[in-house]
Design a protein around this nucleic acid. Structure first.
Lengths: 210, 210
DNA sequence: CCTGTTTTGTGAAATAAGTAACAAAAAACT
DNA sequence: AGTTTTTTGTTACTTATTTCACAAAACAGG
C-alpha cells in the first residue's frame, strides 16, 4: 500500500487533467503532457504510474480512456461515494450547497446537527438530528464523514462516527483529533493554510531586502 | 529561509497548542508536551525550534509566553493581517462569516464580486465590485488574498491580484493557477482532500482482507 | 559541593521523496 | 529490412525530511 499522500493527490490531479484533455479531443497522452498539466516532471508522472502498476506503450504513450479508468479504480471512484456531514454551520452549509462534488462522483447523503430548527427530513439533502446518524450510516453503509462542527464538539462527533462504522473523515475543526481504531482522519485547517501563506510572503520580503 | 511547508504548519500547531496549554495554567513546557499535543516526536519539536533559532533551557524547557511570542513573530502575526476575498459564493460566504479568523489575528477587510446585487458598501465587511480591488488593496496595503470564485474566473482573478500588488494567495478553485512574478499561491482543494480520504479508506480495507 | 537526574540542542543515521539517466520497445521513415 | 526517433519503465542518484542518540547544561537533593 502506497502511503505517500502527495502521490495520491497527484493521481487525482492527473485524473482531472485527463478529463480536460479528453474534452479537448485527446485520445492518447504522453508523460510530459500530464507533467505540464499539473506542473511536475515527466519522470515523476511515470514513477507515480509505475508505483501503481499503470503502464502505457513505448512510443505510444497512454490511452486516455483506459488511464482515466485505472486512476478512478485506484482512487475508489468506480461508483458514487456517499458522504455525510456533521455540523450545518458556515462550512457545512457551503459544502452542502457546493455543486463541484457531484461531478466528482461524491454525493452528500445527509447532514446532521443538534439544532432542531435546522432539521428538514424531506429536502433533497436531509438534515437530521445527530442521534440518527448511526441508523442512517448503517442502513446506507456510508464510509466517509465530514466534521464541520465547532471545536468543542469535534472529538465527540469523531467518536460517534467511529462508533457508526465510518472509516474515513475529513475534519475542518482546527484541532488534533484522537482517532481510535482504524479510521483515517484528514485535516483541513483554513487558519493554518492562511498562516502558511503569510509566513511565505513575509519570508520572501525579508530575503528580497537582503 | 526555511521553505519546508510542513515544518511551518507544525509551528502553527505548536502555537495553537501553546495557547491551550497557557489557558490551562502552564508557564513552561517541555518538548514532549508539545510533541504529544500535536502528535509528533519530541525530537521533531526540538529540531523545528533549532531550525528557527528558538532555544529553551536545559532541564527547564521553554517559557510559554516567550515561545508564543517567538512563534508569532516567525509566522508574521505581530499585527493583524488584513485579507481580501474574491468571490462571494458558498465558500466566500462561509469564510466571511467564519468567526475563527479574528482570534487568529486575521481580519477580512473586504469581499469582491462581479454580481452587483451582492454589493454592500457600508456593512461590517464591505462587498465591492471587482474593479475596485486595485484601489482598495493599494490604499490599505493589503498583501493577502483569497480566491473563492468559480474555476473559469480563477486565473483572471489571480492575475488581477498580482497586478494589485497582492503577495500571497489562498486558492480554493480546483485547478492549477499559473503564478507570474513572486506571488505565493497555496491551494485548498476540497474534492482532492475527500478523494484522498476515500483512497486511504479503500486501501486500508484491501490490506485488511489479506 | 558533589552526585544523580532531567531535558535541551545538534550532528549523524535512517527513511522517504523526487530527479536523472538510460536501456528496451515500438513506431516511422527510407 | 535496416536505421532513426520517440517514449516508456526502471534503476541509480540526489535531495529532503525525520528519527536517533548522546554530550552538555541545569537544576535538585543530600
Amino acid at each position: 500500500m502506497i502511503t505517500n499522500k502527495s502521490c495520491i493527490i497527484r493521481l487525482s490531479r492527473y485524473k482531472n487533467a485527463l478529463y480536460r484533455l479528453r474534452a479537448l479531443g485527446f485520445v492518447k497522452v504522453f508523460s510530459d503532457n500530464l507533467a505540464d498539466a499539473i506542473g511536475v516532471l515527466p519522470s515523476q508522472v511515470r514513477k507515480d504510474f509505475s508505483l501503481f502498476g499503470i503502464s502505457g506503450n513505448k512510443r505510444g504513450g497512454y490511452q486516455v480512456d483506459s488511464l482515466i479508468e485505472k486512476l478512478n479504480t485506484i482512487l475508489g471512484k468506480e461508483q458514487t461515494q456517499e458522504v455525510i456531514i456533521a455540523g450545518l454551520g458556515n462550512i457545512g452549509n457551503a459544502l452542502m450547497k457546493y455543486k463541484g462534488f457531484e461531478k466528482e462522483g461524491l454525493k452528500i447523503s445527509a447532514c446532521f446537527d443538534i439544532d432542531s430548527t435546522k432539521y428538514s427530513r424531506d429536502s433533497d439533502i436531509p438534515v437530521l438530528p445527530l442521534e440518527e446518524m448511526k441508523e442512517f450510516v448503517r442502513a446506507k453503509r456510508i464510509k466517509i464523514g465530514v466534521i464541520a462542527v465547532p471545536d468543542i464538539a469535534a472529538q465527540s462527533v469523531l467518536d460517534m462516527m467511529t462508533a457508526c462504522g465510518i472509516k474515513g473523515v475529513l475534519n475542518f475543526a482546527p484541532l488534533r483529533l484522537r482517532a481510535s481504531g482504524d479510521i483515517v482522519v484528514n485535516n483541513v485547517n483554513l487558519e493554518l493554510e492562511l498562516e502558511n501563506v503569510i509566513y511565505f510572503v513575509n519570508a520572501q520580503e525579508k530575503t528580497k531586502v537582503s
